Amino acid sequence: MVMEAPVVWNNLKGIICVFKPAELSVGRLRTMLIHKICQGMNELEVRPPINYVAIEGNPSKKLSVSVKPNLADHPLVVGPRYQEQDLPVSWSNYLGWNTSGVLLFGIRSGTKQAKFIRENKPARVYKVKGVLGQATDNCFKSGKVVERSTWKHVKRHNMERFLSAMQASHQKKMFEMSGVDLQSDTAYELAKQGLIRPANSKIPIIYGIKCVEFDAPNFTIEIHCINEYETYLIQLIHEIGLKLHSTAHCTSLKCIRHSGFKLEHALLMKHWSIPNILENLATCNEILTNLDGYTPQKNSVLI
């Protein structure tokens, strides 16, 4: 089946969910996505050059009227029909250089949806891996080892106890920043409404944190959070090591969920083709429509 580029272009709008590899910037990934889309569009059946009406002959005698192809509109003269600067794309969540996982882009009119998601700051879920016994100068595996320590005394129940205390501390902080007593009815009513978001969007809040894998010295924790950033998550692993009377550094960060978008919805780079992108746009549009709180209004909040 031959797809016509103008028909595809009219449907090429909305939110697309892609998988961002580690050690690749979001800006670079955006450029690669735009290039891949434009390349695929130009391989489709594009419109032919527009013809023009030519009136030739001696004005004092009989004139001839003919229709000729307009060479000034030929792709060899003006370039490809679909060019990268004509395709607006923006991201709704930013992942750092070392972080992989779910990344959302808004294409064409979908940039408004991307802005809506970005401003509402929905919760995200990460799987962060670490190693006990070593501390690096940047708290990540790429850094230089500056300290070694014992780790065999650290057991899974020790880590789970500390993570539970950390989660409780962040939950208490949420209510304190809201100006309500944790034991009051107001706090209960706030909790019933869903996630409590801090007024300051620069303060990271952890809604849930647990150890999902423990094979000492390696461990993996799952973090449900908001307002986080890569450096904060990396330093969190370092803090866990210190609190457990050892040291630790981060080895991997992966965003496995962003609002209602999960890893299973993320399109790998090798699958970036026009049919797959159109299918992903339709899937993401359905997910976004079914999300609680998605009514693009001023006070809407995504869960």
Rank of each mutant, 00 (worst) to 15 (best):
I256N: 06
S25W: 00
K61D: 02
R156D: 06
N280D: 12
L24H: 00
W9M: 12
N10L: 10
N299G: 03
M32F: 00
A248D: 01
A191C: 04
A199L: 12
G260Q: 07
D86C: 08
S169P: 00
Q39I: 01
R156K: 09
G57I: 12
Q113V: 08
H157Q: 13
P217Q: 01
G133I: 11
K192P: 10
H35M: 04
I34P: 06
Q134N: 14
C250D: 03
Y82A: 05
S142V: 06
C17N: 07
H157A: 11
P6L: 07
I16Q: 02
I205Y: 04
A191H: 14
K243L: 12
P21I: 09
S273L: 04
L33K: 04
S109R: 14
S142H: 03
H224P: 01
M3A: 06
L24P: 01
R81M: 13
L63N: 01
G133E: 14
I196T: 15
S25M: 01
T136W: 05
R47I: 05
K20T: 10
S60V: 03
I37H: 04
N280G: 04
G143H: 13
G27K: 04
N51W: 04
G101Y: 06
H153S: 14
T99C: 15
V65C: 05
S201D: 11
M174T: 15
T150Q: 14
N138H: 06
F219H: 01
V2D: 08
N11H: 12
Y207V: 10
E45M: 12
N58E: 08
N11F: 02
L302Q: 11
E239K: 12
S100G: 13
K112W: 12
E84S: 08
P80V: 11
E239F: 05
S252F: 14
